[in-house]
Nucleic acid binder design. Structure first.
Lengths: 308, 308
DNA sequence: CAATATTAATTCCATAAAGATAATAATCAT
DNA sequence: ATGATTATTATCTTTATGGAATTAATATTG
């Protein structure tokens, strides 16, 4: 019997308090879960889980064993990371979690290049705006726009890019409501607010003379920049969006950049990853790669255009 | 693939520097060893052993992984011991190592009773007078007569019985050479020396007035008490043997106890076992059992007879 | 409060993977 | 080069896996 995989199954069952949930999460059948737990119980010679078809409880020995198993599985992981690191060659499954829109627009373009360059690394990407518990969920790497809260001290957050925001609106909207000439003018406009961090109603603009913060208002707040974008494209108002979101629309002339002499805020992109003793090369490799990729692909065209 | 058992195989291969030795020691086929190592290498994504059919060397990553594996296997063991201990029920394989003669004469009699009382414990007994490295060899418990040297601080030695030695010789020998009346008289006798510890030529005898040590000599020294016994039974001289060795011959009248008012040395029987965080109940169970058994079966008859 | 519905673990059976034995290939000593 | 020894491969047997049917326990509902 494969004790180690049975341990992994057992740990997952205890965490989720369900055979079937653990099964589907682990991608195996529930019958396999059932059998593996049974075998594990036989192996250690004690009942680990008290179960009826309806309720699941962990026995005293089960709880103690669960702790041990977690430690053992972590050690096994560490051993494999150690080998990876000594070996140097990036390899294995890299599980990435990324913000929704950023993932759709940018990460999605970088991934094929990465795959081509490193065929021995398998990718599994989840796009998700909620602050999942990254380690618990088994991600190797999370890409997060805006300052991450790191309740877990075993995580490292490293800023790998700055993402400039740009004020924009459609020519049609501007024709109707006028071009803002100063930041103060924004108060008179319908501002479409992208809620990413807190204080999203405050837009800060900087030029050579200093920066000023304007409290804006409008009839849309959304936590997804594509929603804000669509509203802007539909002539609903002024949006403050990341370069990579509006790029192609600015190029097409469907959106016009406002107050080009001002620099809007910059969002930061953070790579968040476990602070492990031996971190597998695939993680740092991807971070290096992506950082390089972003430098080449992120803040090129709009910058020129806006500052020209 | 069963990573854990593959790790165990790998560790054994590295220790023994041979696939085939590891196979025979682990009781599996060498093809299985070969496959498991290959799979493990695939799994971690690195070559662990550099091997030709003729020579075997451990790669750098292999050496590092080997260390990790040892720790992991120890932890798995500890986890199972923990379960055993919480569970309380003695169970599993108990591997005992014991001195040759003691094992043949006493342990051999205790074992069937133990087996009957605790059917869930499987026994594997090795009789061996050499000071094997107990932990390395995978024994749970060693029974050793005489003071053990414990180079390994992770071992506990617990005295579980005193084994009285008795001076004896055949009536025929005594008729020819006379009965010794004082310890000093032993110098005139051919003393058959059982070499167990050092200084085996010195016999210490104690009575109400104190103890005296006599340097004896003779034409036989042996490291096995049955050899000494046979020599004594063949009228070759005076022996100083453990009660359990000579018991039946004294009863039969083939051996006669000498200087009955004196107490000869006592050997100590030690139980030696790993000082583990969670020691499995089977070990302490056996020690308790055997200690009790020895109290009932060891120093009964001869004591009465000798002191009467 | 009882009968039923529902959900979750287990068992049964067909298939896939892993293990053992025996034969093969490979390497170093003589 | 040959032989002795050791790892690998081939074939067969045993064991594990996944899906359907079963069993069991609580929630629901009349």
């Amino acid at each position: 019997m494969d004790v180690l995989s049975a341990m992994a199954v057992f740990v997952r069952v205890v965490d989720l308090k369900s055979f079937s949930l653990a099964a589907s999460e682990l991608g195996i059948s529930s019958s396999s879960v059932s059998k593996q737990i049974s075998h594990l119980e036989q192996h250690v010679g004690a009942r680990l889980l008290q179960r009826t078809t309806r309720r699941l409880s962990v026995t005293e020995v089960g709880a103690a064993y669960h702790e041990k198993c977690q430690a053992i599985l972590a050690d096994v992981d560490e051993a494999e990371n150690l080998v990876s690191q000594l070996q140097g060659k990036p390899r294995g499954l890299l599980r990435i979690n990324c913000n929704m829109t950023f993932g759709q627009l940018l990460l999605s373009k970088a991934i094929p290049e990465f795959m081509a360059a490193y065929p021995d690394v398998q990718l599994e990407v989840a796009l998700d705006d909620s602050d999942v518990e990254l380690l618990k969920e088994g991600f190797d790497l999370a890409l997060r726009i805006a300052h991450p809260k790191l309740p877990d001290s075993s995580l490292i957050a490293r800023q790998i890019a700055s993402i400039p925001l740009f004020l924009c609106a459609t020519p049609s909207y501007l024709a109707q409501h006028g071009h803002p000439q100063t930041p103060e003018d924004l108060r008179q406009h319908n501002c479409l607010v992208f809620m990413l961090a807190s204080n999203t109603n405050l837009w800060t603009l900087t030029n050579a003379e200093g920066s000023q913060t304007v409290q804006v208002s409008g009839d849309l707040k959304a936590n997804n920049s594509l929603l804000v974008l669509q509203a802007a494209l539909a002539h609903r108002g002024v949006a403050n969006l990341a370069s990579f979101v509006i790029e192609r629309y600015v190029e097409e002339g469907r959106l016009e950049l406002l107050l080009p002499e001002f620099q809007a805020e910059q969002l930061s992109l953070y790579a968040i990853y476990p602070d492990r003793k031996y971190s597998p090369p695939k993680v740092s490799l991807f971070i290096e790669f992506f950082q390089g990729w972003l430098e080449n692909n992120l803040q090129q065209k709009l910058h020129c255009q806006s500052r020209s």
